[in-house]
Every structure is written in C-alpha cells, then in structure tokens.
C-alpha cells in the first residue's frame, strides 16, 4: 500500500495529462488537465512551505541543543520569522503587513535580501577568476580553443575590448556574433537541449509507468 497507491496516483495523473495533449482545452479531458495543473501548482507551493518549515525545525533543534555556531542559527530563525510572519498577516490590519510596497517584507527584501543576493553573486567574480586560471591553462588543443573563445568573448562584451578587436582586419565582432554565438554555440546548445529533452521525456515515461520510484525515497 505504501508504494502501490503513490504509483497508481502518479500513473493516473500522468496519463490524464498525456491524453489531454490530444484534446482541446474546451473538452472535459482538457478541463480535467487544466484543473490538475492548478492542483500541481498548489501541491508544489506546499513543498516550498515544507522547505521553510524544515529549515526552521533544523535550526531550532540546533539552538535548543546549543550546537556549535548556535547563535548564528538563532539569527537565521529570527530572519525567517521577521520576513515571513508580517508577510502572511493581512495588510488591512496595518500597511506594514502583507507584501505591498511599504511593508516590512518589501523593506527587508529591498534593503537587505536584494543587495545581499547581488553581493553573493558579485563575490563569485573573484572565485570564477581563480577557476579560470586553473581551467584556462592551454594544455591541449581543446582547452586552447576554450581559452581563446572565452577571452575573445570577454573582450567583445566590453566597449574597450570591442574597440581593440576592431583594430584587426576582418570585422571580428561581427564574425564572432555570426559564427561563434549564432553558429557553434547555437549548435551545441541545440544539441544539449535535444539530448536533455529526450532524457526528460524518457524519465517522465518511467515515472508515469512506475519504473522510476526514487523520488519516493526509502522505506
């Protein structure tokens, strides 16, 4: 029962969505499919809430047991509550509640979360530079191709670099755009997309038929 019911549910839900592809939205099959898509969004929403609750539980447990670094975990907990609780309260009670402009949620996102996110990604610029040093050593012909392409594209994306490339004959920026970005790069992206899509389709079929069950976990 612990496995059969979930497999049956996945089969029915999957088959309904596959069959509905061959019907118009106005038909009853199309209607059920639309309803299932809404249900999927709702169930998916609960998974995000589950994640937030799970983070809270893990951190709360660490704070209670006074594990190493517990004051930081307490800070995480306070941050979750300060952000989440005012956002779920109705803004009819106070303009500070809800998610509108002027709310606590909006203020924390604009002046704390957003700059921190940008800084986190900006920090990666330094680490990507050290990664580039290791990756870009021209040991083989293939790695030399990667090195040359990356260097030229980086130069091309800044005005000074583009001006430098224009000093050479042959309109390098235009050649780069046509044959590298819209030629080789496009072809590889297309190949990867086709391969990944075929993989995703076969994995979907395995899930619908109940062959793939790893998403259920153990037990």
């Amino acid at each position: 029962m612990k496995t059969t019911i979930p497999v049956a549910v996945a089969f029915v839900a999957g088959v309904v969505l596959v069959v509905s592809f061959f019907f118009d939205e106005g038909t009853w099959v199309g209607g059920i499919s639309q309803e299932f898509k809404i249900w999927m969004t709702i169930v998916g929403g609960f998974t995000i809430l589950l994640g937030a609750v799970s983070i809270t539980r893990v951190n709360w447990s660490a704070v209670q047991r006074k594990k190493e670094g517990w004051p930081y975990k307490l800070l995480t907990l306070i941050s979750i509550f300060v952000m989440a609780i005012p956002s779920v309260l109705p803004n009819t009670w106070s303009p500070l509640f809800g998610r509108d402009v002027g709310s606590i949620y909006d203020w924390l996102f604009t002046y704390l979360d957003s700059p921190m996110m940008a800084t986190m990604f900006a920090t990666l610029a330094f680490y990507i530079a050290s990664a580039a040093y290791r990756a870009f050593r021209a040991r083989t012909a293939e790695s030399t191709v990667l090195l040359v392409t990356a260097t030229v594209v980086m130069l091309w994306r800044v005005p000074m670099g583009e001006a430098f490339l224009n000093m050479f004959p042959g309109d390098i920026p235009n050649w780069l755009n046509t044959y590298v970005m819209n030629g080789a790069n496009l072809a590889v992206q297309r190949g990867i997309i086709i391969g990944a899509a075929l993989g995703a389709a076969s994995m979907s079929l395995r899930i619908i038929l109940g062959i793939e069950r790893t998403y259920m976990g153990k037990g």
Binding site: T56, T76, S79, A84, R99
Partner: peptide, 16 residues
C-alpha cells in the same frame, strides 16, 4: 545566516 533566513522567509511569504 541572515541572508539564508531572509531568503527562506521571502519564499514563504511569496508562496503563501
């Protein structure tokens, strides 16, 4: 840690 907490809270509020 503040960033981690705010991000979790942000998605909680958004999904809610």
């Amino acid at each position: 840690h503040v960033f981690a907490g705010l991000s979790a809270g942000y998605y909680f509020g958004l999904i809610w």
